[in-house]
Computed example of a mutant assay.
Amino acid sequence: MIPQIRSRVLWIVMSGLVLLLASVHLMIGGLDQHEEKSQRLRFLPDGHFLRTASLGYRELTADVLWLQAIQVMGERKVSPEAGRWIYRLLDVVTTIDPKFTWAYEAGGIALCTLVVLPEESNRLLEKGMLHNPEEWKFPFLLSINYAFELGEDAKAAEAMALAAQLPGAPSNLGRLAANFFVSAKAPQQAIDLLSDLYEKTSDPGTKSLLGERLKRVAVERDLQLIEGSIARYRQSHGGLPSRLEDLTTSGILEKLPIEPYGGRYEYDPHSGTVRSSEISERMTLSMKRRRDSL
């Protein structure tokens, strides 16, 4: 009788788990058809409750919810509301399974690539660092956020220095940390490191997000290059160039950089400012503007 009782209990538990996962999947997955995306936040389950309810099947529960996050991250345009939903859902996922490293990595990148939510990205990455202290990618991505989204170079240097000390970290992370301490931004070195991470990443979703992040940093690198060239032109010619091509004809730039999104770099000869036609806000200015408006 005891084996039969145990089998019956196991069947009841498994049935309950299946029903729980199915209800969660339908509850948050069906909102695309019946609710505004901004309403998703109201339907997110509590991570600690699901961690307890899933018993020994935490990884399976986390995987089901992870699939929901992937669907939203794959949308062509992610609104701030959807971005906050991604953060909340990934917080639930990583509460259920704190060792789910892909969720931290992909989420941390997505929250600063698909939508500009660096604080939420940082909280997710810091949570990953807490539960996975030997994973160098989390403090590395945290450092990139501090440097290029928040403009906080001291914190960027601290996070990069921590990443450099962890197992498997690229050898040049220490040098990049030193550059942050000394001179602020180093976009080309960030590109080199992100490119190395891109090549070593096997997960297609994470790889796609890293590719998008690389483009964003490349735009910032190009804008800094053009701005520096405009400053040198003004110093040597006593005025602003009338067009960007003047930077090449004068020999200050060998050639103009190619906008990585397939757009163009637009120049205002009256103010001397330059921007990408495809990116609405600079990485290093977006959060400053938001803070200044408060």
Rank of each mutant, 00 (worst) to 15 (best):
A53V: 06
L55P: 00
E227R: 15
L17Q: 14
G239N: 10
E75T: 11
T284Y: 00
L166R: 12
P187R: 02
E266N: 04
E227T: 15
E75I: 00
A231S: 13
A177I: 03
V78Q: 04
L114R: 15
P167K: 09
A163T: 03
G262K: 05
T61S: 15
I252A: 05
A147H: 03
T52I: 10
M287Q: 12
V78S: 04
F100I: 04
R232K: 14
P170H: 06
I191D: 01
I109F: 03
S276T: 05
L294E: 13
L247C: 09
L26A: 11
I226C: 08
Y104T: 04
K255Q: 15
I252Y: 05
I226N: 05
G251Q: 07
E199Y: 10
G83W: 03
D268R: 08
D192K: 06
E149L: 13
V24D: 13
E126F: 08
S15H: 11
C112K: 02
D268I: 08
L19M: 13
N132A: 09
G107W: 09
I5F: 12
L209F: 09
H237Y: 13
V182K: 13
I70K: 14
V18E: 13
L176H: 01
A164I: 02
L197R: 02
I258N: 09
A22E: 12
F138V: 03
I96F: 07
D203T: 03
K37S: 14
A69K: 03
L67V: 09
R232V: 13
Q71Y: 06
L142N: 14
L67I: 06
V72C: 01
F180K: 02
G238W: 09
L31E: 12
M287E: 12
D97V: 08
D246W: 03
R88W: 01
V13T: 10
L65G: 04
I5Q: 12
K200M: 06
E119T: 09
P133L: 09
Y87R: 02
E259A: 08
R88L: 10
K37P: 09
I226F: 03
V24Y: 02
D203W: 06
G174C: 07
A163Q: 04
V116A: 10
L21M: 15
L141E: 03
A184F: 01
G239E: 13
V72H: 01
G108S: 08
Y104C: 06
Y198I: 02
F181S: 15
S280Q: 12
M14Q: 15
E126N: 12
G107C: 04
T249P: 04
W66C: 01
H270N: 09
S121Q: 02
S293G: 00
S183C: 04
A53W: 08
A218D: 08
T201L: 10
R216W: 09
D153P: 00
E266S: 10
C112D: 03
E254T: 13
L209R: 11
R123M: 11
H48D: 12
A231W: 00
S121N: 08
A53T: 01
R123H: 11
T284P: 00
K77R: 14
L111D: 02
D97W: 08
A154I: 10
A163G: 05
